[in-house]
């Protein structure tokens, strides 16, 4: 099981989402992608996309206005 950290701090929408989409496409099932974001809109659209795409998702608030979206690739 691989774990990849994607640093999107300081990136504005839609950059975190597009980067995450590209990254997850090249990962294997069961791998975990951790996207670090501080864009409050990405904190909503990133989990929404990942859930709709059928992955396991969790959002962790690591600091004021800073989140880590943990995505487990399921398919």
């Amino acid at each position: 099981m691989n774990e990849v950290i994607l640093d999107c701090l300081g990136e504005a929408c839609p950059v975190p989402l597009v980067k995450a989409q590209n990254k997850i496409a090249e990962m294997n099932i069961g791998d975990i992608l951790i996207v670090q974001i501080d864009h409050s809109c990405a904190m909503k659209n990133l989990p929404e996309w990942a859930r709709k795409d059928g992955h396991n998702v969790e959002v962790e608030e690591v600091d004021d206005g800073e989140w880590e979206v943990i995505i487990e690739k399921l398919k």
Binding site: E3, I5, I32, I34, Q36, N56, V57, E58, E60, E61, V62, D63, D64, E66, E68, I70, E72
Partner: peptide, 24 residues
């Protein structure tokens, strides 16, 4: 189920490093 995903990760979460301030 949610907390299981966070606990399975191998890298340490930044939340355990930074103390959170209260901005309320």
């Amino acid at each position: 189920e949610q907390s299981s995903l966070a606990s399975r990760r191998s890298s340490s979460s930044a939340s355990r490093r930074k103390p959170k301030k209260n901005q309320i």
